[in-house]
């Protein structure tokens, strides 16, 4: 359903040679899948998501959603930014931030939107904080607001850019499982960028490994672990450990090249 074909992106810095962030990236994501992308830092993961979300024009190559080329932000696709704290509206309460996800939807009354927003605030574990402002919340809580705001809209495709990167281990575990539950109940397609190999394997049906800049997909790993996954037993499964080792070696080789 989502297809990335020979995507290339060059940046012209203020001084010096152009930077080729994406060399030639190609992959597919099937409807309803949970797919992760891992790669060394600076290899162009955020750039890739921005191109897919129609926020940045690729230098060459195409992004196809349902066979149609993406030229601007497509309907039914939401990007969750790496800088989630900057993506929240400081002048809106948690409730109004989450409601923002519904506001330009036709045919929904204010009360209906608020009820939906409350439901999702509840689902991400922020009940009781509806009237708080984003800057009154911790980083993990802010991230939950951003997630609720995206999910309340029932996007068909959700692009997540290192959403749990700056969270402590316990919050991370909690949010990983909450995300999986929501993903299963919403039947959305998720493309998840992370630098955490274990997280990628734990969450995904499939993991794409990107090379160092100029990046391309160097390997596609199917993760055939049962769902629902479990933080203890899944992570102890030999197949989990095998996938982790394999990806770790691939990325180590890439880092060594840099």
């Amino acid at each position: 359903m989502l297809e990335v074909r020979d995507l290339r992106k060059e940046f012209q810095p203020l001084s010096g040679q152009p930077v080729v962030a994406l060399g030639s990236v190609s992959f597919r994501v099937e409807a309803g899948q949970f797919v992760s992308i891992v790669g060394p830092s600076g290899c162009g993961k955020s750039t890739l998501l921005q191109c897919i979300a129609g926020l940045s024009r690729p230098t060459a190559g195409r992004v196809l959603l349902h066979g149609r080329e993406v030229t601007g932000p497509p309907e039914g696709l939401i990007l969750l930014f790496q800088e989630y704290n900057k993506s929240l509206m400081a002048w809106r309460s948690v409730l109004r931030n989450v409601r923002f996800g519904l506001e330009n939807r036709a045919g929904m009354g204010r009360a209906e939107m608020d009820a939906e927003a409350r439901r999702y605030i509840d689902l991400v574990g922020l009940k009781g904080f509806e009237a708080h402002y984003p800057w009154e919340l911790s980083g993990g809580m802010q991230q939950r607001v951003a997630i609720a705001r995206a999910l309340v809209r029932h996007p068909e495709v959700l692009l997540m850019d290192e959403p749990f990167g700056s969270l402590d281990a316990l919050t991370r575990i909690e949010l990983e499982d909450a995300l999986l539950r929501l993903w299963e109940s919403l039947r959305a397609t998720i493309l998840f960028v992370t630098h955490d190999i274990e997280e990628a394997v734990y969450l995904s049906d499939r993991v794409y490994v990107l090379s160092h800049r100029p990046s391309q997909v160097i390997e596609e790993i199917e993760v055939k672990l049962e769902r629902p996954r479990n933080q203890l037993t899944t992570r102890e499964d030999p197949r989990f450990i095998g996938a982790r080792h394999h990806i770790f070696e691939l990325i180590s080789k890439e880092m060594a090249k840099a």
Binding site: L55, P73, L77, F81, K86, S87, M89, E103, N104
Partner: peptide, 24 residues
């Protein structure tokens, strides 16, 4: 990031103006 958020939520120009630019 805020402007891009408005874009990914597909705000129309006038919504972008009222909901992001003016309060921001």
């Amino acid at each position: 990031v805020l402007m891009n958020t408005a874009a990914t939520f597909r705000l129309r120009p006038w919504e972008r103006f009222w909901k992001v630019v003016l309060p921001g």
